[in-house]
């Protein structure tokens, strides 16, 4: 045993460090439930900001939803928006400060229910912003009510017998719709259920910020996420449930990767 302890002591030295928490994350302990995807995505955003060296130039817009306090964790400038209005607030900030990196961070209730209009029109205008969309198929913050993205048959506080299409309509694949809009430059759907997925999501977030620097239009990153409290499963069971149920409805991968559409395509002739 002491041989193992000696070996560990030899390994734990500054010159052997291969991973440490990003300095762009501050020391506040996150209020999220154990295992919540929000924490993983916060960390990836912080790491991208650190690696791109843009901590002083980045402004985040936090939503209403569990991530309302995102500003307590990532050490950049923030503006909190009213429920669903983050893309409108981001538009204003980006237009008066075009050299800043501006991103919204929104849940499915925020982005795809109350904020649908702001979401669609910001992307359709091709605002040079990044939008991070945490789709956990539920209203986490308010106690687990049905969201537009809730799956058919999924039990929530407001669908105790499961989502019924006759009563509640269908799960909204808003990301597919946004990919149709000419203002969308980069649209992707990722997840964070295992180390490989986490690394892919980080690459996607980095690409989204780089697209903003190139002023190519809106870069939109959906992260299919878990809400173990709302789903009433453990974090590990939640990942499994997500893989089995969410991924068929919300398949992972890039939906669009191009610069903003040519305005000539849309111009009147003559």
């Amino acid at each position: 045993m002491s041989e193992v302890a000696d070996r560990i002591k030899e390994i734990i030295k500054p010159e052997n460090l291969v991973y440490a928490k990003s300095p762009v994350l501050n020391d506040d302990i996150m209020h999220y439930c154990p295992g919540c995807s929000h924490g993983v995505v916060h960390r990836l955003i912080a790491e991208v900001i650190e690696e791109m060296g843009i901590q002083e130039q980045t402004i985040g817009i936090s939503p209403v939803g569990c991530a309302v306090f995102a500003y307590n964790y990532i050490d950049i400038d923030w503006q909190e928006a009213a429920h669903g209005r983050a893309p409108a607030v981001a538009t204003g900030i980006k237009r008066v400060m075009p050299d800043k990196y501006v991103f919204t961070y929104q849940g499915d209730g925020d982005l795809a229910a109350i904020g649908t209009a702001e979401t669609f029109h910001a992307v359709n205008r091709g605002e040079n912003i990044v939008m991070i969309f945490i789709n956990n198929a539920i209203y986490g913050m308010t106690g687990g009510q049905m969201a537009p993205t809730t799956l058919v048959g999924q039990v929530t506080a407001t669908t105790p017998n499961g989502r019924d299409v006759d009563l509640n309509g269908y799960p909204l694949r808003i990301t597919e719709l946004l990919a149709q809009l000419p203002g969308a430059a980069f649209v992707t759907r990722q997840s964070v259920q295992n180390p490989a997925a986490v690394r892919k999501t980080k690459k996607a977030i980095r690409k989204a910020f780089e697209i903003q620097a190139m002023k190519k239009g809106t870069a939109f990153v959906e992260v299919v996420s878990t809400c173990s409290s709302g789903w009433k499963l453990s974090p590990v069971e939640s990942n499994k449930w997500m893989e089995e149920n969410m991924f068929p409805q919300y398949p992972l991968g890039d939906l669009k990767d191009s610069s903003r559409a040519d305005a000539d395509l849309y111009r009147i002739k003559g």
Partner: peptide
């Protein structure tokens, strides 16, 4: 680390940790 002799320093654990509370070291022997 229940089985510290197994660790390869691959950083997978840190990649999935929502609370960023894992630091990873790696060395060659």
């Amino acid at each position: 680390m229940e089985n510290p002799e197994n660790c390869t320093g691959c950083t997978n654990c840190a990649a999935v940790c929502p609370d960023s509370c894992i630091t990873v070291y790696r060395a060659k022997f």
